[in-house]
Amino acid sequence: MKVLEKLLSHCRQKSPWLFHMNSGSCNGCDIELVASIAPRYDVEQLGIHLEGSPRHADILCITGPVTYNTLEAVKTVYGQVPRPKAVVALGSCAASCNAFAGSPTVVGPLHRHIPVDVYVPGCPPRPDAIIEGIAKAAELLGHSERRPLTDEDVKDIPPCGGCEAAAAEGEEPCR
């Protein structure tokens, strides 16, 4: 059984399939993600493959600061990715809301709503950085003690600065 588990873990690292989702991004990161998938960088060498359906994916690449309108979609798509899965937050917006922090229509950053495994900061990040981030996420997928992610994992994520500020003002935090 040990051998089979090792094989499975190896195959998971060698075959990360992506699903790309925009949660209200300005499109800058999306262009860079598409550029990193294009023939110039040849990510197929790492087994990386952009998939059409979240149900086929292992790694969810999310760009944008998570707007009010996209929140439900982000949660739904996260639920549709079968376990084991990893989330890559692309760009500064997904990490910290960047220039959109404090906007009434922005409910991010991403880790308030779903567990994030890898951050790729940058506005926008370079394709090299994106590929490195995806490769890191693929490495995480291979660790058997990490899977499967449960709702418990989501609960343990500490509240972000925005949530603490909201709690201090007596408002309800987002999670």
């Binding site: 195959c11 060698k14 197929e44 060498q45 087994g47």
Partner: peptide, 16 residues
């Protein structure tokens, strides 16, 4: 003009 996937890629995909 890419190098492309390794020989075992379809096998990796299948097992994964």
């Amino acid at each position: 003009q890419r190098i492309g996937p390794p020989l075992l890629q379809p096998f990796y995909d299948f097992v994964k």
